[in-house]
């Protein structure tokens, strides 16, 4: 297993366990837990805390027929939900979001590509492909941005991020992630803001255009 140095903040794990994290972030959390034992243990601890809350909840009487209804339904045949396993660099939850297919990359210029997994009012989550040495194009985010490295690595003002590492960037962080040498860097990135990638004006052209 890789040495993962950048982990999921505890509040995000708790909120994920409680099921209250917006979908784009929840996908990144599920992918990170799939790669990181430390955060899996943290997730399981929050499940235990949720279980303790459940067990100590006030019991409310249930209707007489409910138990016999449930007992009668035990033998009903059911179709198990499909399970998605890891495929190459992509953890199971990402494979599920891709519906088992390969990512459909769209060019953003200068070799940078993205594949949007979902986008909507809750924010967006996408895969990013950044060639070695290339900067991530300007991608202003209004809120929290979570970036999980799946292949290669990148560095920015806050540090170095390798496979399995998670960068947590709030709106105050001005950062310019640059892919390191070696393999192209592939990340899973989620924000709660609408997509603001300016595909034809990547960061290095911005000084020229003065924006």
């Amino acid at each position: 297993m890789n040495q993962i140095g950048h982990h999921m903040p505890d509040a995000l794990l708790a909120s994920y366990a409680a099921g209250n994290l917006p979908h784009p972030y929840a996908l990144v959390v599920a992918a990170h837990i799939s790669m990181c034992l430390t955060c899996r243990a943290g997730f399981e601890a929050h499940q235990a805390a949720g279980g303790a809350v459940l067990e100590t909840s006030n019991a409310v009487a249930i209707s007489g027929g409910l138990k016999s209804d449930v007992m009668a339904l035990l033998d009903e045949p059911t179709v198990p939900a499909p399970r998605f396993e890891r495929s190459g660099i992509y953890p199971g939850p990402v494979v599920e979001a891709l519906r088992g297919k390969a990512p459909r990359w769209r060019s953003l210029g200068l070799g940078v590509k993205q594949s949007i997994l979902s986008g909507g009012s809750e924010g967006s989550v996408r895969l990013l492909y950044i060639p070695p040495g290339q900067a991530v194009p300007d991608h202003g985010h209004n809120g929290l941005e979570l970036t999980l490295v799946l292949q290669g690595s990148f560095s920015d003002e806050t540090g170095h991020y390798g496979v399995g590492d998670l960068e947590v960037a709030d709106q105050d962080l001005e950062h310019t992630p640059i892919a390191d040498g070696g393999d192209p860097c592939i990340c899973l990135a989620a924000t709660d803001a609408p997509l603001r990638f300016t595909s034809l004006v990547p960061r290095i052209l911005q000084p020229i255009f003065g924006i």
């Binding site: 099921g19 399981e44 499940q47 279980g51 459940l54």
Partner: peptide, 18 residues
Amino acid sequence: ARAQVSAWIYQIARNRQI
């Protein structure tokens, strides 16, 4: 060895509610 029954049922219940 991984989870208490209550933790496991808690997770199922939250998934159902979501």
